[in-house]
């Protein structure tokens, strides 16, 4: 199983803490780790580390210019989900790899139009386990409810999904076995989990679209 996790370390943490995250990922038997950080880190730990960048903006124009800039850096581009209109517009913009943080987006922020769009473009929808692990009462209930609804869309439109801990520090990370246990709470089957683990790798291996230069 090519287990993959996405970690978003706090901007303030140092290189040592990032190394600890990488070592924990290796100990928990992850094969691939997406690290969203600007800080430098060592990469010689025997697992594939993919650098990511998180685009967070409420304005479409700002988000698009940030994506344009990020495209040149050869990083995995994650865009923080927002309102429905934002998600629709941003999903049709080229260059996005992952739609992230859907649990924090407002109600009705995801529908069949977005599901169709991301399925067509191969954009991954990330389901973070963070609200399930750390959340209490309503936050956790809402996340579970939303993920169940998203899974219904996913089974119809077949868009790729990924599951992550969104860990800020090494203690927040969980093993693939725990991923399976937590994902079963919102109805993700074992075979579907394997697909979610390989979604990022498949996205990275996807050939670049042909560009017309006039």
């Amino acid at each position: 199983m090519n287990a993959t996790d996405i970690c978003i370390p706090d901007m303030t943490i140092d290189t040592e803490a990032i190394t600890k995250i990488i070592k924990t990922a290796q100990r928990l038997k992850f094969r691939t780790l997406v690290l969203v950080t600007e800080n430098p880190f060592e990469t010689s730990f025997g697992l594939t580390i993919i650098k990511g960048i998180l685009v967070k903006s409420e304005s479409i124009a700002k988000a698009e210019s940030m994506i344009e800039r990020s495209k040149r850096q050869d990083k995995l581009i994650l865009v923080h989900a927002g309102e429905n209109s934002f998600n629709r517009s941003i999903s049709s913009f080229p260059g996005i790899d992952i739609l992230y943080g859907i649990h924090r987006a407002p109600k009705n922020s995801f529908d069949e139009v977005i599901a169709r769009l991301i399925a067509k473009k191969g954009i991954i929808l990330d389901l973070s386990l963070f609200p399930i692990i750390h959340g209490e009462e309503h936050a956790r209930q809402n996340a579970l409810k939303r993920y169940r609804e998203i899974l219904k869309f996913q089974r119809i439109f077949r868009f790729p999904i990924s599951i992550s801990t969104s860990a800020e520090i090494s203690i927040d990370m969980r093993s693939p076995r725990e991923f399976s246990a937590l994902a079963s709470l919102f109805g993700l089957a074992e075979n579907e989990l394997e697909e979610t683990f390989s979604a990022i790798k498949r996205r990275m291996e996807r050939p670049e679209p042909v560009r017309l230069i006039i």
Partner: peptide, 16 residues
């Protein structure tokens, strides 16, 4: 496993 995965702190200490 799901229950123990949600253990993030115990009496003020961060644990997993």
């Amino acid at each position: 496993l799901a229950i123990t995965a949600t253990v993030t702190s115990g009496f003020g200490q961060g644990i997993a």
